[in-house]
Design a protein around this nucleic acid. Structure first.
Lengths: 156, 156
DNA sequence: ACCCATTATTTGCCTAGGCAGTTATCCTCC
DNA sequence: GGAGGATAACTGCCTAGGCAAATAATGGGT
């Protein structure tokens, strides 16, 4: 049943390494497409989710991105310093911080989905449509099996 | 020809996010399997490559792992502090540093391929053999197209 | 009304990687 | 054999994420 042999693990181009490389490649392509906009790949995700109303608090961003809350605090610090968003204490639940894109953040947010699409198209340029959907299917299968897919938001 | 639409990019469970998640999941599984051995997933890669004689200098490790040389210097600092390896200035090329696993590093290195295999087996548990090889094929195809596969070492 | 578990955010401390610049060494070409 | 380009390693400075602990606020059960 196991796919890899404990006594003869293929070091070069092992599955783990391939996954690390594809993740690296994806980020490199994204960073290149984003470089004109002074956004990093990590920052881009936040702006994208906020622009599309998938998240408006730090906790929602953490859940959507499967990311640590401490890391998110500092990410938002950087975005706030860059003048892309504001923090406003929520009035209904005073534990929460409501995040609001500034005009500049909003303007950037409009462009960001196109950049994402262009980048992913570049990454998958060499694949057929069937290969792309097979790839997505396999990824989703592994992630569901490990319960590693974030739940979609109920509201919005 | 493009697979993703610029004007309607699917935010949730987009391909980019799936790739980030699978990379995260792979590292989490690996870290869990490594936790008894006081090794992180990143450190494990270095020990593995050295144990299998795929690299014996910082520059070789950088190439094999597609990793920055500054980052590697600091990684080796940590491994040296942990007493897993030693640095020795090369006598034939005095620019180079020869890396040598200590006894403890070597002992750990023996176990590491099994841990890698177990981890990757856990990750791919839910897949058929055909799915695993299709997955690897697609990954390799994308990486070759982007010229992002490190060259195998000539010697060794 | 009060205790208690849960949630939200922040902070400190750690590992980790990228980029630019520095120094030392090697190697090639003239 | 000396100049100049390439390579190896390192350093400083940055972004980025994980873990643990602190603080604040919420909400449910009694």
């Amino acid at each position: 049943m196991p796919h890899f042999d404990r006594n003869n693990y293929p070091v070069e181009q092992s599955l783990g390494h391939l996954i690390a490389l594809i993740n690296q490649l994806k980020d490199r392509i994204l960073e290149r497409h984003l470089s004109d906009h002074e956004l990093t790949a990590a920052q881009f995700k936040v702006v994208l989710l906020m622009n599309r109303r998938f998240a408006s608090t730090p906790a929602e961003l953490c859940r959507a991105l499967s990311l640590d809350s401490g890391a998110m605090t500092r990410m938002l610090d950087r975005l706030e310093t860059k003048g892309l968003l504001r923090r406003e204490r929520s009035s209904t639940d005073r534990r929460q911080v409501q995040l609001v894109l500034t005009d500049r953040g909003q303007a950037l947010g409009e462009r960001v989905p196109e950049i994402a699409a262009d980048s992913m198209n570049e990454l998958t340029e060499c694949l057929s449509a069937a290969e792309v959907s097979e790839f997505q299917r396999i990824l989703t299968k592994m992630l569901s099996a490990a319960d590693a897919l974030p739940q979609p938001r109920g509201d919005a």
